[in-house]
Nucleic acid binder design. Structure first.
Lengths: 235, 235
DNA sequence: ATATGTCAACTAACATGTTAGCTGTGAACG
DNA sequence: CGTTCACAGCTAACATGTTAGTTGACATAT
């Protein structure tokens, strides 16, 4: 590793705008920055620097970093440094496997239990996706995409399964930011989402599973080339 | 809430025996105690008390509790108290859903990729289970049971999928301690495990999936009556 | 020139002092 | 007798002082 480790100097969200305990605000601000790739993988996070930037003491920062470490978003090197975790293709493949397992199971269930109201909500979301793609609003599209998957998980009837499932593909979520601007991919995504919805509408359990599996399978194909494109982000 | 909150006074593991940072040791000791139901659900954990018991200051204890909170093993009531999370059937059903999704996917994969060495390891484990059931060594059986499932997850070829998957069914693991001594259940469990292994040995993907689904389905059936048996442990 | 040992500087980890928010008790009041 | 409101006591949350481990630079020896 020849190059000097760069030190974070970007813009963090203003924690004044959030509420709740300080540690929670610091956690949220850092988490969002990491997930949105505002802080690059491998970048060093210094407690003292973060304290200054937020104007808080070390305790809430320490707690925030502990939580981020638990989620695998930062690597703590004991007594030495804390840095934003680099991607690992091995780890991302694992997350893809888990995500596939969970979301395919979810979509199979939803295909048999879905209500008209849920179908409407899903189709509305997909129409929104189309509009956002036309407008080339990639950030908005990303959010609508996430909402589509979250809806499917919620419609399993398990209230918080979306939250838990979201936690186990955090690296994936982060990597997706990198492939977002890829030419034509958003439009393809909408088509794949539509295929999933059509199968659910037809109560076609296996068709929905196939459509979702195909859709999720596209992700790892797009992510793998990133290792060569952004070697610094991988380990 | 009429009854007085009981205060923990049981035996915790000696953190001297562990190594690594203090916070890590405290975390491990508390986690093990909670998972083994040595500390009852709903019981209050006082920082000051824990500090005395381990002979450490509040910092490592705070960090340990933060991590446990992130895993959902303790509930922190802001500015008030921290208590061991009570069970929620809703939440346990969610964990069953997720566990089923992941382990069924794993077993399907393993059925097509398994090596002779892996088959041997699995069958050895099942024979061990039989012996432990005969000896009525329930604790030993519990560990062998966990090892069986962990092996299947590892044999997917995803090195740490077992660790991640284990994290999302922590409440389940804890509840299983309660149903462990149920008459005849361990013997049934061995039979179900054997069915899974037989299907894997036959490279019968769907059969393995069915066997695993049936096996995991037994769990929620056993857990549901616990709400009446141990009302204090549920919320 | 290279390998190695020493040391200074920096960092997280830990200890402890201080603040603020919740909770239950009891007094004042309707 | 019931309701509300103030206050005391307790807790987690936060701030800050202290310790100890790691790292990398530099000098020294081979």
């Amino acid at each position: 590793m020849a190059n000097i480790t760069n030190i974070y100097s970007g813009t963090l969200a203003d924690i004044e705008k959030l509420d709740g305990p300080l540690s929670q605000r610091v956690y949220t601000a850092l988490r969002d920055a990491i997930l949105d790739m505002k802080i690059a993988p491998g970048e060093v996070l210094r407690k003292a620097t973060i304290c200054e930037q937020f104007g808080v003491s070390r305790s809430p920062v320490a707690e925030a970093l502990t939580r981020l470490s638990g989620e695998g978003l930062v690597d703590v090197i004991p007594q030495s440094a804390t840095r934003v975790t680099r991607f690992s293709l091995e780890e991302i493949r694992e997350e893809c496997f888990l995500r596939d397992a969970v979301e395919v199971a979810a979509v199979k269930r939803v295909a048999t239990t879905r209500t008209d109201a849920q179908l409407l909500q899903l189709s509305r979301n997909i129409r929104l996706q189309s509009l956002l793609v036309e407008d080339k609003d990639f950030h908005g599209f990303f959010e609508a995409d996430e909402a589509f998957h979250a809806m499917l998980l919620e419609f399993t009837g398990f209230r918080s399964v979306a939250a838990i499932a979201g936690q186990l593909s955090l690296q994936l979520r982060r990597a997706r930011v990198l492939i977002l601007p890829e030419e034509g991919r958003p439009a393809e995504t909408v088509i794949e989402h539509t295929a999933v919805l059509d199968a659910i509408r037809a109560s076609d359990e296996d068709g929905a599973a196939r459509a979702m599996r195909h859709h999720l399978g596209q992700l790892i194909v797009r992510i793998e080339p990133l290792e060569k494109q952004y070697p610094d982000f991988f380990r």
